[in-house]
C-alpha cells in the first residue's frame, strides 16, 4: 500500500469539524452577538451559558440521567450478548441461522414502530420515568448489535483455546472470565462503544418514556427550545456538553474502532 500523504481526509475532517467549531464558538457567545453579525470567534467571550446549565438542577441532571440509562443499557446489552455470541460462534444448533437473522431484523426496526406499545407497557407497569425503562427499551436494537460484533471477535479466537482450557480444569465461568474475555477485550470495547453510541443518540423513546426524574438532556433541550426559542447560546452550550461524553469515549477506544464489524462464523 502506498504511504503517500493524501489531502482528502484532511479536507474532509476539516469540513466535518466546521459545524462543531461553530457550535463551540456559539456556546461562548452572548445571544446579542449571535443575533448580530456573523463572527468567527467570540468577541464578547462568556462562560455565562455553561454557568447557567451547571447552576440549574434540571439541566445538569439531564446529563446524569442520560448517562445512567445508557450505562445500564450497555451493561445489560453486552452482559447478555456475550454468552449468546459465544453460543452462536461455538455451537451448532437447530435454527441457528434463522435466530441470528431474526435478531438482526430487530436491530433494523426503528424506535418509532415500538413507541406506542412501550408507552402503554411501561405505564401499565408503573415504570414510566425510570432509568431502567429506557435502558430496557434500548435493548431491542443494542442486544442484536452487541451479539453481532462479539460473535465476530469470538470466532477469530481458535477453538483449540476452549479445549485446552477445559483440559486445564477451567469451568465455563472460569474460562469466560480468565481466558475468553481478556482475549476479546477489544471486541468488548467495540461492542460497548456502539451500544453506548446508539443509546446515547436515541431521542424518541428516551424522551417519551420519561417525564421528570429520568428526563435526559435531549428532553430538557426540547422543552427549552419550545419555551425560550431565542436562547441559542445556552442551547449551544448544552449541545457541546452533549458531545463531550462521546468524545471521551472515542479517545479510549480509538485503537479498536477500526476493527469494528468483522463478520463471524454465522453469517
Amino acid at each position: 500500500m502506498t504511504l503517500k500523504f493524501s489531502p482528502a481526509p484532511l479536507v474532509y475532517v476539516a469540513l466535518l469539524m466546521t459545524p462543531v467549531y461553530w457550535l463551540v464558538v456559539m456556546s461562548f457567545k452572548t445571544n446579542a452577538e449571535i443575533g448580530g453579525q456573523l463572527t468567527f470567534y467570540p468577541h464578547d467571550f462568556t462562560f455565562q451559558n455553561y454557568a447557567a446549565i451547571f447552576g440549574d438542577r434540571d439541566w445538569y441532571m439531564g446529563y446524569v440521567n442520560a448517562v445512567i440509562y445508557v450505562m445500564m443499557n450497555v451493561i445489560i446489552s453486552v452482559g447478555v450478548a456475550l454468552p449468546a455470541a459465544y453460543a452462536f460462534s461455538r455451537h451448532d444448533f437447530f435454527g441457528q441461522r434463522a435466530l441470528f437473522f431474526s435478531l438482526l431484523m430487530f436491530r433494523m426496526l426503528a424506535p418509532a414502530i415500538l413507541l406506542a406499545p412501550f408507552v402503554q407497557i411501561f405505564s401499565d407497569l408503573g415504570m414510566i420515568d425510570t432509568h431502567i425503562a429506557v435502558a430496557i427499551a434500548h435493548c431491542f436494537f443494542n442486544v442484536p448489535l452487541a451479539i453481532w460484533i462479539l460473535e465476530g471477535f469470538i470466532s477469530s479466537v481458535p477453538r483449540e483455546m476452549d479445549e485446552s482450557a477445559r483440559i486445564d480444569g477451567y469451568g465455563f465461568a472460569g474460562f469466560m472470565s480468565r481466558i475468553l474475555i481478556p482475549q476479546i477485550a477489544p471486541g468488548i470495547a467495540v461492542a460497548a462503544f456502539f451500544c453506548f453510541m446508539f443509546s446515547w443518540i436515541e431521542y424518541m423513546l428516551a424522551n417519551a418514556l420519561t417525564t421528570i426524574d429520568a428526563k435526559p438532556i435531549a428532553g430538557i433541550m426540547t422543552r427549552a427550545a419550545g419555551v425560550l426559542a431565542g436562547d441559542v447560546a445556552m442551547l449551544s452550550a448544552a449541545s457541546v456538553l452533549g458531545l463531550l461524553p462521546g468524545i471521551v469515549l472515542i479517545i479510549f477506544v480509538r485503537k479498536y474502532l477500526a476493527t469494528g464489524f468483522s463478520m463471524g462464523r454465522v453469517i
Partner: peptide, 23 residues
Amino acid sequence: YIVLLAIPLLAPAIVVGYLWKVL
C-alpha cells in the same frame, strides 16, 4: 483522524437537528 471522524457519530439526534437548524 479516527477520533475526529467519530465525533459526529456520537452527537445525540436532538443536538444534530438543533445544530443544523441553527446553521
